[in-house]
Design a protein around this nucleic acid. Structure first.
Lengths: 330, 330
DNA sequence: TTGTATGCGTTATCAG
DNA sequence: CTGATAACGCATACAA
């Protein structure tokens, strides 16, 4: 990456303007001239400097994405959907993980200076900074967060799905429930799920903090829960990984699922279908969340749309065998 | 991101050179002058344009990473280790997934124009292009690949670990083995593992193609294998995910692990420890692979080192219960 | 159809 | 200590 447009121009015996035009087809160029240019480009192995192009075009042709971590399939899937569409649209993606990072603000601002817009997961970024970014005119799309002014938001439906799930479980005749999830910070996905099941189950369900959304944390919390007094008949988990942990805990204790205790997850990650018993869960279109975010960002950046949009994608209740009742196909 | 250094200079009543110096401490600036500049910067909320800085500095302060996919913990872990250290070194990371992508060459070249160097997994990029990148002077570090000239390579030890694993299994008295892995393309990690176990087990082990390194593929392949004639006594899997699939297949068929058939994995992903039975596997320092790659790249880029280095990280045999014999702690 | 000149936002050199 | 000014690499109005 050393040869510049000037060298190409000199070798082809034309001006840099002509080289530029010939390469990007942005203006009239005589067929013969084009050939000369192309030949020179070939011989010199010229590739326009991204920096030069971006500076002149006034755009980065890159999207950012900030996530807390990449543990588990959820963030990964969204990321892949995002990257795929971004790439399709000719945009690179620059990542930023905030896990264990101090000075997130500086990192996010730096990122903002490298991209034309970015996807931010939930409440990964402190609210004041979000406000500042909006004020600075950074194109933003939030995934898994409540709507806010000045940015797109995108999420999967939670409350109604949670109600449906709870209703299904109640239909099996269970009467003592537990909700296993990380700290229920307001406004995020998990909180909405909790609210949903609670609306249906009321006092029959109690929440248990798992600290994190991991198999390990789910396992630990479930172990304690299942060993204690008044073991619940059904455990509704905040996501599939926590649920997989619960499944392991049950097995560890020699409890049959769903015979002794029913377990449900959320997301429908690949492992959910393969778990024993197969996990009843709520399928959320993770990949699509990322893909849509990339498209939305593109609209915002190109100016195809200038008013924020708030979208909620629908989910699907996947009844499998871990919740008991009528056994279903996997 | 609209205010430029000129506006700051004007407001502070100084030249842009002084602003630049005041901000980066790259030259003498009177205390009083500095104050004025800082005040103007504050009031205008000025942040130097990344593009301008990069163009002038002649560096992107960014690293690239190209991977085939992000399915499973392996790539994700390496990526996280990479991003963490890169961030520590003040470098962003821009990603590129090649899965299902046509024109990988163009994408990789574009990426090369956006970063100061990049990490490439195994043989994700066609060899001719690798050669071209090397020729162009792009700083490269390959992870999980055999050494090549002009670039760093980094991998975990495979052959000896595989021999140790095979030896351990042989010590349990098994006599019929199967190796479950994706197509054994030459030179990559899995191939080395296969060679290793083969050296020890010889004709007693046969290879089975799983197409991909996923739980699903492992499950399918193991199901066929375990249903067939001459069921193996031990299945050595190319990685933990395939092994988890094998575990599920065994359970599906009502076979006890390790009673009826032993199963081993590779990588020691989190799920390996939580699997029932806990998976005997070879721990590979995935996170460190990424971290080291970032450091190596930094050395190459800053010029702290100019001759390629080829590193092999050591692994650790994790004997757990899925391989039979003496039961061990998890 | 082609060339000239300017802008894009910094950094850094070299005179004052 | 400070200020012009030349890079850096390209795109693009505007002229010719």
């Amino acid at each position: 990456m050393d040869v510049t447009i000037y060298e190409v121009a000199k070798r082809a015996g034309v001006s840099i303007a002509t080289v530029s035009r010939a390469l990007r087809g942005t203006g009239p160029v005589a067929a013969r001239t084009r050939e000369k240019v192309l030949k020179a480009v070939e011989e010199l192995n010229f590739t326009p400097s991204r920096l030069g192009v971006s500076l002149a075009e006034g755009r980065h042709a890159a999207n950012g994405i900030v996530f807390p971590d990449l543990a588990g399939p959820y963030y990964t899937e969204v990321l892949l959907g995002y990257e795929e569409v971004a790439s399709e649209l000719g945009r690179s993606v620059v990542i930023l993980s905030t896990k264990g990072r101090t000075k997130v603000g500086d990192l996010v601002k730096d990122l903002a200076g490298r991209v034309d817009g970015m996807l931010i997961f939930g409440h990964t970024v402190p609210e004041p900074l979000v406000a500042e970014l909006v004020r600075l005119g950074v194109r933003l799309v939030f995934v898994s967060r409540e709507p806010l002014a000045g940015a797109d938001t995108l999420r999967s439906e939670n409350t109604a799905s949670a109600r449906a799930l709870a209703g299904h479980l109640a239909g099996h005749g269970y009467e003592r429930f537990a909700f296993l999830g990380a700290p229920l910070t307001s406004q995020d996905d998990v909180d909405q799920r909790w609210q949903g099941v609670r609306e249906v189950l009321g006092g029959a369900i109690e929440a248990v903090d798992t600290r994190h959304y991991t198999v390990e944390c789910g396992y630990d919390a479930a172990l304690t829960l299942l060993r204690g007094e008044g073991r619940p008949e059904a455990i509704v988990c905040s996501d599939d990984e926590v649920a997989l942990g619960a499944l392991l805990a049950a097995e560890e204790l020699g409890l049959d699922v769903p015979g002794d205790v029913a377990v449900t997850g959320w997301d429908d990650i690949m492992a959910a279908r393969h778990a024993r018993p197969a996990l009843t869960t709520v399928r959320q279109p993770m990949r699509e969340l990322g893909a849509r975010a990339a498209r939305a960002l593109d609209e915002l950046i190109t100016g195809a749309r200038d008013t924020p949009r708030h979208l909620v994608l629908t989910t699907e209740l996947m009844i499998r065998s871990s919740c008991g009742g009528h056994p279903a196909a996997t």
